[in-house]
Nucleic acid binder design. Structure first.
Length: 569
RNA sequence: CGGGGUAUGGCGCAGUCUGGUAGCGCACCUGCUUUGGGAGCAGGGGGUCGGGGGUUCGAAUCCCUCUACCCCGACCA
């Protein structure tokens, strides 16, 4: 392509409302422009990157025999009512009516549509297993779109759905899909990890997320420092302390604690570490009453773990202030489990505290020297908290380290959640009707692009991994307007590279060298070829890789071979 | 939705407190010079100051109201 006919509107200045580097660079490189909150137009350069990512994804899907489909973005409410998700999904689901006042939504995902398709088309176990996939625009009305393309409302996703007669077959496809994901992210040149994950609202059980490791990531990933254990912090088990609870040494005592409403303030006021304080949270129970959740003062509640406990309302809902006062006689900040008339569930670490500090259920008063089993009943003990750096690894090998990750893929074993709700059945060998078992597998195609930039940039701009680069080579003629020799040499090498099947961009804008250099570095073209009088006098082109410190001279006659080799690895 | 902030030419900003009819840098257009790391000089075009209402002789500036966008928290590929 010629830059004169392939507009790349680069920006010298960083747009004020772009927070993270990938967002800034995508705007500056002229890949995207914002239309409205969470909605972006893709310019020609961005589209080329997008197509490259899609191509790799398609190839790896085809390699494991997944078949591509294209599904409606607009979906009828009836389908979502069948799966119960019309009610469950909440305001994130963009709903609207057509001219006949019929309810529709813009698909945030396609489980319902694909299940509907399959139940109509697949009748026999002989047709299974089968895997469909789609690469399409989806829409989620995010509470807070941010970070540009990273958390947009409209985004492109690859979703695959597999259908089976039994869990073993699902496991087999799941494993192949896992390997396909490893292949996709490896080919795209990303530093990533597969981690154990929660399956969330989509349902099902076994689940892995694929995360690109980056400090700007929105997810916290727990790793073992000595084994290959990796899990989303949401899911990582906090092992029970090995040390037993110490014997009580203090007696219970009521202390006036005016104005001490945070754990930090309370701990310093009482002269104890926050790890000797007990934090009590009141949440709504399934039966309508309240349930007290107790944690060590230095630990944080894991809401996903909490809402999975029987008796606790899901989704987890904190009690209203009025209900808290009615149940405890005090306000938030002064509540504790002693004398409380509601069920008490303590985190494993909180359950081995002795002589601890907790709220007295009277405003501005706390208790010190409190002990389970002596001053109040032994609580129900559960894993309630987020793991923290230094915790023992749940697999018993090593200790937990926590890093940030960008979730770019997620695979689930759905089981029969959707087939049951939507009555997707096939006839088995015995001619009996049985529910199909499903898996689903997502890749955030647009998000991958932002994640790749987070991992591959420097102070000059983007440095694309080869598989994503919008062009492989940039040909830069210096002073072509003054030198017919330069112009012709540049045109002929451009033609030769293009003929050799190499994606090449020639900067024929006739700008000063510095501008071309800066633009090509900003947009991240991996290989740069400078054509100037100086080099031509020696029969040379000047080559520089995006990450190279110094250019190298390459004989004109060798240039195609030379570049093909560079591009190949 | 709660808390904080912003809105002035394509982009980045000043001007707002203390009302007097809009400015700077970059970008854009023309000409000349220049040309191996974002050129120089000269000339030029472009803004209902987010919308509506009000106060005033006069509003970017003060008051009311609406909207959009950004940041911090709860949602997810």
């Amino acid at each position: 392509m010629r830059v004169s006919r392939f507009p790349i509107p680069t920006l010298k200045e960083t747009p004020a409302d772009a927070e993270i580097v990938s967002h800034q660079l995508m705007l500056r490189a002229g890949m995207i422009r914002k239309l409205a909150s969470g909605l972006y137009s893709w310019l020609p350069l961005g589209v080329r990157v997008l197509r490259n990512v899609e191509r790799v994804v398609r190839q790896e899907m085809e390699r494991i025999d997944a078949a591509e489909v294209f599904l409606p973005a607009v979906q009828p409410a009836e389908l979502w009512q069948e799966s119960q998700r019309w009610e469950q999904y909440g305001p994130e689901l963009l709903r609207f009516k057509d001219r006949h006042e019929r309810d529709f939504c813009f698909g945030p995902t396609h489980e319902e549509v694909i299940t509907d398709l399959v139940r109509g088309e697949i009748k026999s176990y002989r047709q299974l297993p089968v895997t469909y996939y789609q690469i399409q625009t989806k829409f989620r009305d995010e509470i807070r779109p941010r970070f540009g393309i990273m958390r947009a409302r409209e985004f492109i996703m690859k979703d695959a759905y597999s259908f089976h007669t039994n869990p073993a077959s699902l496991q087999e496809t799941y494993d192949r899909m896992y390997q396909a994901y490893v292949a996709v992210f490896t080919r795209l040149g990303l530093g990533f990890r597969a981690v154990l994950a929660d399956s969330g609202s989509i349902g099902g059980h076994t689940s892995h997320e694929f995360h690109v490791l980056a400090d700007s990531g929105e997810d916290a990933i727990a790793f073992s420092d000595s084994s290959d254990y990796a899990a989303n912090v949401e899911l990582a088990e906090a092992a029970a302390p090995v040390e037993p609870r110490p014997a009580p040494t203090e007696s219970i005592n009521t202390v006036d604690t005016p104005g001490q409403h945070t754990m930090e303030a309370l701990a310093s006021f009482m002269g104890v570490p926050t790890s000797r304080c007990l934090k009590t949270l009141l949440v709504k129970g399934e039966a309508g009453g309240l349930i007290a959740l107790c944690l060590r003062g230095d630990h944080h509640l894991n809401e996903i773990k909490a809402e999975k406990l029987s008796g606790v309302l899901s989704p987890l809902t904190l009690a209203e202030d009025a209900d808290i006062r009615a149940a405890t006689g005090a306000g938030v900040g002064s509540i504790g489990p002693v004398g409380l008339e509601v069920p008490v569930i303590a985190d494993r670490a909180a359950a081995v505290l002795a002589d601890f500090v907790c709220g007295a259920n009277q405003d501005d008063r706390h208790l010190s020297g409190v002990n389970w089993g002596r001053d109040l009943a032994e609580p129900q003990v559960e894993d309630l908290r987020n793991v923290v750096e230094g915790d023992p690894s749940p697999d018993g090998d090593g200790h937990i380290a926590i890093r940030r990750g960008i979730e770019v893929g997620h695979i689930f074993q759905l089981g029969t959640k959707y087939s049951e709700a939507m009555e997707a059945t096939v006839l088995d060998e015995d001619g009996k009707s049985c529910l199909v078992t499903m898996g689903c597998y997502g890749i955030g195609v647009t998000r991958i692009i932002a994640a790749a930039i987070e991992q591959n940039h420097d102070d000059r701009g983007i440095a694309w991994p080869a598989a994503m680069a919008p062009f492989q080579v940039a040909v830069l003629p210096l002073n072509a307007a003054r030198s017919e020799r330069v112009r012709q040499a540049a045109e002929s090498v451009y033609a030769a590279l293009s003929a050799a099947g190499i994606d090449t961009l020639i900067d024929d804008r006739g700008l000063r060298p510095g501008v071309m250099f800066a633009d090509m570095e900003l947009i991240g073209i991996p290989h740069r070829l400078v054509v100037g009088e100086r080099g031509l006098d020696q029969g040379m082109f000047e080559y520089k890789g995006r990450q190279d410190a110094e250019p190298t001279l390459v004989p004109q006659s060798d240039i195609i071979d030379f570049l093909q080799q560079r591009i190949a690895h």
